[in-house]
Amino acid sequence: MRVRILRQESPTAEPYWESFCYDGPTETSVAGMLDHLNFHDDILNDAGQKTRRIAWECSCMQGTCGACAMVINGMPALACDTFLRDLVAGRPEEEIVLRPLSKFPVIRDLVVDRASIQDNLKRSDVFIGSYQPMDDESFSHQYEAAKCLKCGLCLEVCPNYTNGNAFFGAVFANDCYLVHARNREKSREIKQTYARHFGSACSKSLSCMDVCPMRIPTIASMARLNRRVR
Protein backbone atom coordinates (compact mmCIF):
# COMPACT_ATOMS: atom_id res chain seq x y z
CA MET A 1 0.00 0.00 0.00
CA ARG A 2 1.39 3.40 -0.95
CA VAL A 3 1.09 6.28 1.49
CA ARG A 4 1.76 9.83 0.31
CA ILE A 5 2.31 12.47 2.98
CA LEU A 6 2.64 16.23 2.71
CA ARG A 7 5.62 16.99 4.92
CA GLN A 8 7.20 20.12 6.33
CA GLU A 9 10.26 20.16 8.55
CA SER A 10 9.50 23.34 10.47
CA PRO A 11 6.95 26.19 10.54
CA THR A 12 9.01 28.19 8.07
CA ALA A 13 10.22 25.38 5.78
CA GLU A 14 8.69 24.58 2.39
CA PRO A 15 6.19 21.69 2.33
CA TYR A 16 6.95 18.71 0.08
CA TRP A 17 5.38 15.35 -0.75
CA GLU A 18 7.01 12.10 0.27
CA SER A 19 5.71 8.56 -0.33
CA PHE A 20 6.11 5.39 1.69
CA CYS A 21 5.38 1.73 1.15
CA TYR A 22 3.23 0.36 3.95
CA ASP A 23 3.31 -3.39 4.48
CA GLY A 24 1.83 -3.56 7.98
CA PRO A 25 -1.53 -4.85 9.14
CA THR A 26 -4.59 -3.58 7.29
CA GLU A 27 -6.92 -4.12 10.25
CA THR A 28 -5.73 -0.92 11.82
CA SER A 29 -6.35 2.80 11.74
CA VAL A 30 -4.33 5.51 10.03
CA ALA A 31 -2.82 6.20 13.48
CA GLY A 32 -1.75 2.56 13.76
CA MET A 33 -0.28 2.80 10.26
CA LEU A 34 1.74 5.93 11.15
CA ASP A 35 3.09 4.18 14.25
CA HIS A 36 4.05 1.22 12.12
CA LEU A 37 5.84 3.39 9.53
CA ASN A 38 7.79 5.19 12.25
CA PHE A 39 8.72 2.07 14.17
CA HIS A 40 11.79 0.75 12.37
CA ASP A 41 15.56 1.09 12.79
CA ASP A 42 15.46 3.52 9.91
CA ILE A 43 12.50 5.10 8.24
CA LEU A 44 12.75 4.78 4.46
CA ASN A 45 10.64 6.40 1.78
CA ASP A 46 9.39 4.47 -1.25
CA ALA A 47 12.63 5.18 -3.11
CA GLY A 48 14.49 3.38 -0.31
CA GLN A 49 16.05 6.59 0.98
CA LYS A 50 16.45 7.27 4.68
CA THR A 51 14.23 10.08 5.86
CA ARG A 52 12.89 11.82 8.97
CA ARG A 53 10.31 10.12 11.14
CA ILE A 54 6.79 11.36 10.48
CA ALA A 55 5.56 13.85 13.07
CA TRP A 56 1.92 13.58 14.08
CA GLU A 57 0.04 14.24 17.28
CA CYS A 58 -1.86 11.75 19.43
CA SER A 59 -3.09 11.24 22.97
CA CYS A 60 -6.10 9.02 23.56
CA MET A 61 -5.92 6.82 20.41
CA GLN A 62 -9.63 6.21 20.65
CA GLY A 63 -11.31 9.20 19.04
CA THR A 64 -12.02 11.18 22.19
CA CYS A 65 -9.29 13.85 22.30
CA GLY A 66 -9.03 15.23 18.76
CA ALA A 67 -5.21 15.37 18.72
CA CYS A 68 -4.71 13.39 15.51
CA ALA A 69 -6.96 15.48 13.23
CA MET A 70 -5.60 15.61 9.67
CA VAL A 71 -6.78 15.38 6.07
CA ILE A 72 -7.05 11.76 4.93
CA ASN A 73 -7.70 11.14 1.23
CA GLY A 74 -9.13 14.62 0.96
CA MET A 75 -11.44 14.32 3.96
CA PRO A 76 -10.75 15.93 7.34
CA ALA A 77 -10.77 13.09 9.91
CA LEU A 78 -9.14 11.70 13.04
CA ALA A 79 -6.31 9.30 12.24
CA CYS A 80 -7.11 6.99 15.16
CA ASP A 81 -10.72 6.81 14.09
CA THR A 82 -10.22 6.19 10.36
CA PHE A 83 -9.59 2.60 9.39
CA LEU A 84 -7.52 1.34 6.48
CA ARG A 85 -10.23 -1.21 5.68
CA ASP A 86 -12.61 1.65 4.91
CA LEU A 87 -10.05 3.62 2.92
CA VAL A 88 -8.92 0.85 0.62
CA ALA A 89 -12.12 -1.26 0.70
CA GLY A 90 -10.72 -4.26 -1.14
CA ARG A 91 -8.46 -2.20 -3.40
CA PRO A 92 -4.97 -2.60 -1.88
CA GLU A 93 -3.46 -0.72 -4.83
CA GLU A 94 -5.26 2.37 -3.57
CA GLU A 95 -3.02 5.19 -2.36
CA ILE A 96 -3.58 6.82 1.01
CA VAL A 97 -2.88 10.54 1.02
CA LEU A 98 -2.28 12.41 4.27
CA ARG A 99 -1.80 16.11 4.74
CA PRO A 100 -1.98 18.46 7.71
CA LEU A 101 -5.08 20.56 8.33
CA SER A 102 -4.67 23.46 5.92
CA LYS A 103 -6.37 26.17 7.96
CA PHE A 104 -3.78 26.24 10.71
CA PRO A 105 -0.04 26.97 10.70
CA VAL A 106 2.04 23.81 10.36
CA ILE A 107 4.48 23.04 13.17
CA ARG A 108 5.95 19.91 11.66
CA ASP A 109 4.57 17.40 9.12
CA LEU A 110 1.03 16.56 10.27
CA VAL A 111 1.20 18.61 13.48
CA VAL A 112 -0.49 22.01 13.33
CA ASP A 113 -0.96 24.86 15.76
CA ARG A 114 -4.67 25.09 16.57
CA ALA A 115 -4.30 27.78 19.24
CA SER A 116 -6.57 30.09 17.20
CA ILE A 117 -9.57 27.95 18.24
CA GLN A 118 -9.01 28.73 21.91
CA ASP A 119 -7.89 32.29 21.22
CA ASN A 120 -11.11 33.14 19.36
CA LEU A 121 -13.27 31.76 22.14
CA LYS A 122 -11.27 33.73 24.68
CA ARG A 123 -11.21 37.04 22.85
CA SER A 124 -14.96 36.93 22.28
CA ASP A 125 -15.74 36.15 25.94
CA VAL A 126 -17.40 32.77 25.36
CA PHE A 127 -17.81 31.78 29.00
CA ILE A 128 -20.78 31.41 31.27
CA GLY A 129 -20.14 33.81 34.11
CA SER A 130 -22.91 33.15 36.59
CA TYR A 131 -24.93 29.96 36.14
CA GLN A 132 -28.56 30.81 35.44
CA PRO A 133 -29.76 28.14 33.06
CA MET A 134 -32.58 28.67 30.61
CA ASP A 135 -35.73 26.87 31.72
CA ASP A 136 -36.46 25.26 28.40
CA GLU A 137 -33.01 24.20 27.25
CA SER A 138 -32.42 20.59 26.31
CA PHE A 139 -29.91 18.80 28.49
CA SER A 140 -29.29 16.27 25.76
CA HIS A 141 -28.21 18.94 23.30
CA GLN A 142 -25.95 20.54 25.89
CA TYR A 143 -24.40 17.12 26.47
CA GLU A 144 -23.78 16.75 22.74
CA ALA A 145 -22.38 20.27 22.32
CA ALA A 146 -20.05 19.88 25.32
CA LYS A 147 -18.47 16.84 23.65
CA CYS A 148 -16.67 19.12 21.17
CA LEU A 149 -13.01 18.05 20.87
CA LYS A 150 -11.73 21.40 19.56
CA CYS A 151 -10.02 19.28 16.91
CA GLY A 152 -10.60 21.72 14.05
CA LEU A 153 -12.09 19.25 11.55
CA CYS A 154 -15.22 21.37 11.22
CA LEU A 155 -13.09 24.39 10.37
CA GLU A 156 -11.03 22.50 7.83
CA VAL A 157 -14.10 21.43 5.85
CA CYS A 158 -16.01 24.71 6.21
CA PRO A 159 -16.31 26.78 2.99
CA ASN A 160 -16.68 29.98 5.03
CA TYR A 161 -13.79 29.53 7.44
CA THR A 162 -10.44 30.75 6.21
CA ASN A 163 -7.99 31.83 8.89
CA GLY A 164 -10.26 32.49 11.85
CA ASN A 165 -9.76 36.23 11.85
CA ALA A 166 -13.46 37.12 11.60
CA PHE A 167 -15.53 33.97 11.06
CA PHE A 168 -14.95 31.44 13.84
CA GLY A 169 -16.79 28.33 12.61
CA ALA A 170 -18.92 25.56 14.11
CA VAL A 171 -16.62 24.97 17.09
CA PHE A 172 -17.44 28.52 18.14
CA ALA A 173 -21.18 28.18 17.52
CA ASN A 174 -21.46 25.17 19.82
CA ASP A 175 -19.64 26.84 22.69
CA CYS A 176 -21.81 29.95 22.20
CA TYR A 177 -24.84 27.72 22.51
CA LEU A 178 -23.57 26.37 25.84
CA VAL A 179 -23.24 29.89 27.21
CA HIS A 180 -26.73 30.76 25.96
CA ALA A 181 -28.21 27.66 27.62
CA ARG A 182 -26.47 28.21 30.93
CA ASN A 183 -26.80 31.92 31.52
CA ARG A 184 -30.05 33.49 30.45
CA GLU A 185 -28.72 36.93 31.39
CA LYS A 186 -25.88 36.57 28.95
CA SER A 187 -28.09 35.14 26.22
CA ARG A 188 -28.62 38.39 24.35
CA GLU A 189 -24.93 39.28 24.42
CA ILE A 190 -23.78 35.83 23.31
CA LYS A 191 -26.31 35.77 20.47
CA GLN A 192 -24.84 39.02 19.20
CA THR A 193 -21.32 37.63 19.47
CA TYR A 194 -22.49 34.51 17.66
CA ALA A 195 -24.13 36.55 14.92
CA ARG A 196 -21.00 38.63 14.44
CA HIS A 197 -18.55 35.72 14.21
CA PHE A 198 -20.74 32.96 12.84
CA GLY A 199 -24.41 33.58 12.06
CA SER A 200 -23.88 36.39 9.59
CA ALA A 201 -21.37 34.51 7.44
CA CYS A 202 -22.35 30.84 7.66
CA SER A 203 -23.63 29.68 4.26
CA LYS A 204 -25.25 26.59 5.86
CA SER A 205 -23.36 23.96 3.90
CA LEU A 206 -23.45 21.98 7.15
CA SER A 207 -20.37 20.03 6.07
CA CYS A 208 -19.16 20.64 9.65
CA MET A 209 -21.67 18.08 10.86
CA ASP A 210 -20.54 15.50 8.31
CA VAL A 211 -16.95 15.49 9.56
CA CYS A 212 -17.53 16.03 13.29
CA PRO A 213 -16.09 12.97 15.09
CA MET A 214 -18.54 13.53 17.94
CA ARG A 215 -21.47 13.89 15.52
CA ILE A 216 -22.51 17.14 17.19
CA PRO A 217 -25.74 18.42 15.64
CA THR A 218 -24.42 21.95 15.20
CA ILE A 219 -27.58 22.86 13.31
CA ALA A 220 -29.49 22.50 16.60
CA SER A 221 -27.12 25.00 18.26
CA MET A 222 -27.63 27.33 15.31
CA ALA A 223 -31.41 27.00 15.46
CA ARG A 224 -31.43 27.98 19.11
CA LEU A 225 -29.01 30.86 18.68
CA ASN A 226 -30.78 32.17 15.58
CA ARG A 227 -34.04 32.61 17.48
CA ARG A 228 -34.96 36.23 17.77
CA VAL A 229 -33.26 38.00 20.66
CA ARG A 230 -35.97 38.47 23.26
Binding site: E57, S59, C60, C65, G66, A67, R114, A115, I117, Q118, L149, K150, C151
Partner: peptide
Protein backbone atom coordinates in the same frame (compact mmCIF):
# COMPACT_ATOMS: atom_id res chain seq x y z
CA UNK B 1 2.11 20.79 25.70
CA UNK B 2 -1.47 20.48 24.47
CA UNK B 3 -4.85 22.07 25.20
CA UNK B 4 -7.02 20.54 27.96
CA UNK B 5 -9.13 18.65 25.42
CA UNK B 6 -6.18 16.29 24.83
CA UNK B 7 -5.73 15.45 28.53
CA UNK B 8 -6.39 11.94 29.79
Amino acid sequence: PHPSERAQ
